[in-house]
């Protein structure tokens, strides 16, 4: 009989799936009957997770921390928004194009994972969303600048806004759980092992026959496509989409914190990090009001220092035979 510490450390254990899956499923119901306002926080948390999980995959699969994953939120979101506004398409039809647009942009940017690393990669990736943000202002006839595009077909219209949000809680949760499942499978497959070697030492990995360039580009493009879906989701969720909400540095920092606080790019930790950040943010803005912008980063700063292994790492004891690639954040 394994002790609770052991199975709690194994994200694939059925008890964890039952417990954490259960909590995530019950949360919207509780919110619906007690504090309906929390439902939108749940959606925000799921949105963060929708970006965080693929970013974790991208980080591990390329051995590099992308500082501009929000570029693909913008690409996916604008692709969906433009098609919906101009052609009147619903979410079902815009979906493939949002994914394709993100994948194509990622493909164009993907050589950077082979030709740059360290600070250069950080700077290159950091610049991309900022450049795109500029473009949304320069071509504001298309992107409508900081007002953003409105009139996007929404997912559902039941007539009751409360019910709409309730349903979307589950819809976003399903996307998150699908992401988690697929990424978990991938990381535990032969590709996962290749990724973890790339993450540890690229040059050695190539020397033992791993086609590191192929693996890195594949993982980069795949995760970018997954992040693009989150933009598509937000566009059809709000019915409006403005790059200024997702492309600036402040938003990007939040996503990186989801990743790092959750557990050093560990994909299951991203969900923990996403819910933690979304709820902390909501709680502080309701209780603290205008000092929130200062208190929020201070709390995060302290947590980053106090929890080098992230929130998930608190529980995760090393288990024999386990390998679970994480980002190298050394103190």
């Amino acid at each position: 009989m394994p002790s609770w510490k052991q199975w709690l450390a194994d994200p694939g254990n059925w008890k964890n799936i039952a417990i954490f899956g259960g909590i995530l499923f019950i949360l919207p119901i509780i919110a619906y009957f007690t504090l309906p306002g929390i439902m939108s926080t749940v959606i925000t948390a799921n949105f963060y997770a929708m970006v965080g999980i693929p970013l974790g995959l991208m980080t591990i699969g390329t051995g590099r921390l992308n500082f501009g994953p929000n570029l693909y939120i913008g690409i996916g979101g604008y692709a969906a928004a433009l098609l919906s506004v101009h052609l009147g398409w619903g979410p079902l039809f815009t979906f493939p194009f949002a994914v394709i647009a993100s994948v194509l942009v990622a493909l164009g940017f993907s050589p950077t994972v082979n030709i740059s690393k360290g600070l250069y990669f950080v700077l290159l990736s950091l610049l991309m969303p900022l450049i795109f943000l500029e473009l949304t202002f320069v071509y504001s006839n298309i992107f409508k600048g900081d007002v953003g595009l409105s009139g996007i077909t929404q997912f559902i219209a039941t007539g009751s806004p409360k019910l709409n949000v309730f349903i979307l809680c589950y819809f976003s949760l399903i996307i998150v759980l699908l992401y988690l499942y697929a990424t978990h499978k991938l990381i535990n497959s032969r590709y996962g092992i290749m990724m973890s070697t790339i993450n540890d030492d690229e040059e050695v990995a190539e020397g033992i026959g791993i086609k590191i360039r192929k693996v890195k580009i594949l993982m980069f493009v795949l995760s970018a496509g997954m992040i693009g879906v989150s933009g598509w989701f937000m566009a059809h969720y709000f019915g409006t989409f403005a790059g200024i909400s997702y492309l600036p540095l402040t938003f990007m920092m939040k996503i990186l914190l989801v990743l790092i606080l959750g557990g050093r790019a560990q994909i299951h930790g991203c969900v923990v990090g996403a819910y933690f950040i979304a709820f902390l943010e909501m709680f502080l803005s309701r209780t603290l009001g205008f000092v929130q912008p200062i208190v929020f980063p201070v709390i995060l700063f302290i947590l980053l220092l106090a929890l080098p292994e992230g929130l998930f790492g608190l529980f995760r004891k090393r288990k024999y035979g386990e390998y679970m690639p994480t980002l190298h954040v050394r103190r």
Binding site: T197, N199, D200, E203, Y320, Y323, T326, H328
Partner: peptide, 11 residues
């Protein structure tokens, strides 16, 4: 030696 330091020996 340049092992993959974060991975167990088998991996």
């Amino acid at each position: 030696p340049r092992p993959f330091p974060d991975l167990v020996v088998l991996y």
